[in-house]
Design a protein around this nucleic acid. Structure first.
Lengths: 224, 224
DNA sequence: TGCTACTTTAAACAACTGTTTAAAGTAGTA
DNA sequence: TACTACTTTAAACAGTTGTTTAAAGTAGCA
C-alpha cells in the first residue's frame, strides 16, 4: 500500500492532477455548491466516478483543492519571511507585509482565488479547513509584526491583521472595485492594486488611534 | 393593479414579510445555492409555491432579500452623512468612516451578513445587484472623503475605499478572527471590533506611502 | 499464461432542485 | 347569492445532485 514503486502508476497521478486543476478552477470561480462533480469531471476530461474514487467525496476534493493551493503559497510566505529575517538586520513593516500579501507569484491567479473562496463558504465547510492550514503561517507573521510594532497591543494587532486579510481577500475577489461612476471600469494600474493594498494596510497597522469607539460615537451622535 | 385598498390583503403582506425574514436568515447564513426554496418555506412556515407566487423566482427572492436589508442601511448611512455635513463645519475623517461602517444599528445582525453574502456570490448573481444598490451611497461617501483627504489622488482613494469595504465585510463575516493560539476564541471587546476597524481604516485612508510597489519589490527581492 | 492490484467505465441509485399546475379557499362587492 | 380578484394548497414536473455498483480494462510479476 505504501510501496510507491508498485502502486500509483503514471496514469493515476496524471488523472489526479487533472482533477485537481479542474476543481481549483471551478471551485474558485463558482464556489462549492455550484461547481458540480460532473462539471469538474468534464473540465478535467475524466470519468465522473474517478472523482469519488480518488478523493472520496466532494468535500474531500474541495479540501484537497484548497490545500493544493494554500500549502505552496504559505510555504513561499514563510520562505520570504525567513529570508528577510536572516538577511536584514531590521526588516521594515512594509517588507513583512509584502512577504505576506504578494502571493500572486506562486501558481496562477486561480490559486489565490481558491483560498479567498474558502474564506466565504459556510462555516461548516471552511472553519476546520482554514484553521489547520493557516495557523502556523499567521503565528509566524504575527510574531514578526509584533517586533516592528511593539507599541501596538497584542489583541489590537491581531485584529488589524484580520483586517489586512479582509482587504487582501477583497482585492483578490474583485479585479476592480465597484465602479463609482458610469464610465466603465477603472484602471488598476501596475501590480493589480497590490501596491495600493500595501500602502493601505501599512497605514492601518501603524494607526495610532486608541480612543475607544464607543466614546467617540456617543460624542458624535450627541451633535445632532 | 395599483389600487392598494383592494389588492394586497393583510395576510398576503404578512406572508411576504415572513418569507423575506426567513430568506434573509438562510441566505445570509448559507449562501444562495445551499439555501433551498423548501428550507426557506419551512422556516417561514408557508407553502413552498408561495415563494414563486410572491417573488417570481429564487434569484428574484435573493435580490429582494438583499434590497430589504441594503436599502435601509444605505439610507441610514446617507442620513448620518447629511446630518454630519449640515451640523459640523468640518467633519473629520473618523466621523465619515463611522457613518459608513457603523451599520449594525439598522435591522439585526443578519442584515449586514446578508449584504456581505452578496459580495461573495458569483459575479453573475452579485454584480448587477451590487452596482445598482451601492453606487449612489459610494459616490456620496467618496465625495465626502475627498474633501477631508485632498492630498490623496482620486484613483488611490477609490482603491482605499475598496479596501475599507473588504475589511468591513471580513469583520462582518467572522465574529472573531482565525484564532492564532490554541486557547479558544479571543475576546473582541466592546462594539464587536468596530472601534478597531475604524482605527485601522482611518490609518489606511491617511497612509502617506506613494512609492510604487513594483520598485520596492524589486529592491526587496534583490536583497536575497 | 495466469494472477494480482489498480484504474477506468457506463449505468444506475435515491434524494433533492426550482418551478408549475389545477384545484380549493378566502374575502370583499354588486 | 353570485361574482370577482386574490391567495393558498398539495401534487406533480423535469432536471440535477453526489455517490455507488458491477463489469471491463490495464499493467507488472510469477
Amino acid at each position: 500500500m505504501s510501496d510507491s514503486s508498485r502502486s500509483l502508476r503514471a496514469d493515476s497521478r496524471q488523472t489526479q492532477e487533472d482533477i485537481l486543476a479542474a476543481s481549483v478552477e471551478l471551485f474558485s470561480q463558482k464556489g462549492f455548491a455550484p461547481a458540480s462533480m460532473r462539471l469538474i469531471a468534464a473540465k478535467a476530461g475524466v470519468n465522473l466516478a474517478l472523482l469519488n474514487y480518488h478523493f472520496g467525496s466532494k468535500l474531500n476534493l474541495f479540501e484537497a483543492s484548497f490545500l493544493h493551493c494554500a500549502a505552496p503559497i504559505n510555504a513561499e510566505r514563510i520562505r520570504l519571511l525567513d529570508e528577510l529575517e536572516s538577511n536584514v538586520a531590521d526588516p521594515t513593516l512594509e517588507q513583512i507585509v509584502i512577504a505576506f500579501v504578494d502571493v500572486g507569484a506562486v501558481g496562477d491567479a486561480n490559486w489565490s482565488r481558491m483560498i479567498a473562496r474558502v474564506f466565504v463558504e459556510s462555516d461548516e465547510i471552511s472553519q476546520p479547513i482554514l484553521e489547520r492550514a493557516f495557523r502556523p503561517t499567521l503565528q509566524r507573521f504575527k510574531t514578526a509584526l509584533q517586533r516592528v510594532l511593539p507599541e501596538v497591543e497584542e489583541e489590537t494587532l491581531e485584529m488589524r491583521f484580520h483586517f489586512l486579510v479582509g482587504s487582501m481577500l477583497h482585492l483578490i475577489r474583485f479585479s476592480s472595485p465597484l465602479k463609482l461612476s458610469e464610465n466603465g471600469r477603472k484602471n488598476w494600474g501596475p501590480n493589480n492594486g497590490l501596491d495600493e493594498l500595501v500602502n493601505f494596510v501599512v497605514g492601518g497597522l501603524r494607526a495610532g488611534g486608541s480612543h475607544p469607539f464607543s466614546d467617540r460615537r456617543v460624542a458624535y451622535r450627541r451633535l445632532s
